[in-house]
Simulated scan of single mutants.
Amino acid sequence: MKGLLVSGFAAIGTGTGAMLTLHAEAGLDPMHSVISEYAFQATGWLLPASLTLFAAGSALIAEALRRAGMSRWIVVLLLAWGTSMFLIGAFPTDRPGVPLSLSGGIHRYAAFAAFLMMPVAGLLLAQAKIRYAKAVRILSALALGALLMVVVPYVVRMFGIPLSNDDIPAGLTQRVVVVTELGVLALAGLSMLNPLAAQRSQGGVSPVLA
């Protein structure tokens, strides 16, 4: 199981590095530019590469959780989050001002699904009393709060009220969601690397329980 976790962390770390490189190279305003817009930059290929690595990391950590006897719902949610991340990268969004296409629709709803599933998984992890449960609960709550702020502008536009990303910190709120959800995923894996948890596992107690 340690090999799964180390590989998962390596995938997440590499994906984070690719994402940071993309942000540094693109030079867009992270306060207002949503992450999807980076796909149209010269180094835009780093976006699907990063999201695919996040998906791989999630799958590896989910498998480690499954082997540790964690709830099936948590494992399914982590796998679904990873699948959604892959779809977000595989189906790019539409350029600004272009009508919603099939690819753009898949991208949008996969992103919403991913943004919703990880906080739910985090709350279930906290309920299972994994190590770092308090931190996981806080990150999950922050992710849900930021997700609400991401969704509100779309609801406002549905009522015909013009609202562009330049009018709101759309990029910031989206990044808060992504960072907090990666934090939940990382803590889920770290909770099983704790030496005390490993000792309890040898004594017949699940390594994911505090």
Rank of each mutant, 00 (worst) to 15 (best):
S50L: 02
A126G: 15
F159C: 04
A198F: 07
I106M: 07
G204C: 05
S164L: 13
V176M: 10
S206F: 07
D29L: 07
P162V: 07
G97V: 09
W45R: 07
T93H: 11
P207N: 12
G17F: 04
L125V: 04
G122V: 04
Y154Q: 11
G57T: 01
V205Y: 10
A186N: 01
E63Q: 11
S101I: 05
E25L: 15
P162Y: 09
R67W: 04
A197D: 06
S33I: 04
A11Q: 00
I138H: 04
L124T: 01
A188E: 08
Q174L: 03
L142Q: 06
S71H: 09
V208L: 15
M1Q: 11
A210E: 15
F9Q: 03
R200L: 12
M118Q: 11
S206P: 03
F9G: 03
V120H: 04
L65F: 05
V184K: 02
G122C: 07
V6Y: 09
A111M: 09
A64N: 08
R66S: 12
V150F: 13
R131N: 12
L123A: 06
G145R: 10
L79S: 02
A68N: 05
H32S: 13
R66V: 00
P92W: 10
L65Q: 14
A26I: 01
V6N: 05
L185K: 00
K129S: 14
I61Y: 12
T52V: 08
H32A: 11
P119S: 04
T43G: 12
P207F: 08
R157H: 05
A135K: 13
A26T: 03
T52G: 15
T21D: 03
S33P: 00
Q127D: 14
A26G: 03
V152L: 13
G203F: 09
G89P: 09
A188V: 06
A90W: 15
P99V: 12
L124Q: 10
I74M: 14
L172D: 01
T93V: 15
V152W: 11
R131G: 06
L125R: 06
L5W: 00
P162L: 10
I130E: 02
G183K: 02
A113W: 02
L77H: 00
V208H: 14
A10V: 14
A59P: 05
S50A: 15
I74L: 07
A143H: 04
A141C: 08
A210G: 13
T83L: 12
A141P: 00
G17C: 04
Y132P: 02
S36N: 10
L123N: 03
E63M: 12
L125I: 09
I161C: 04
A42W: 05
P153W: 11
S33A: 14
A126F: 09
V75D: 07
S84N: 12
T52N: 15
G82S: 09
V76P: 00
S7K: 08
A18G: 01
A68Q: 04
L148Y: 13
L163T: 09
F115G: 14
A49C: 14
G97L: 07
I161L: 14
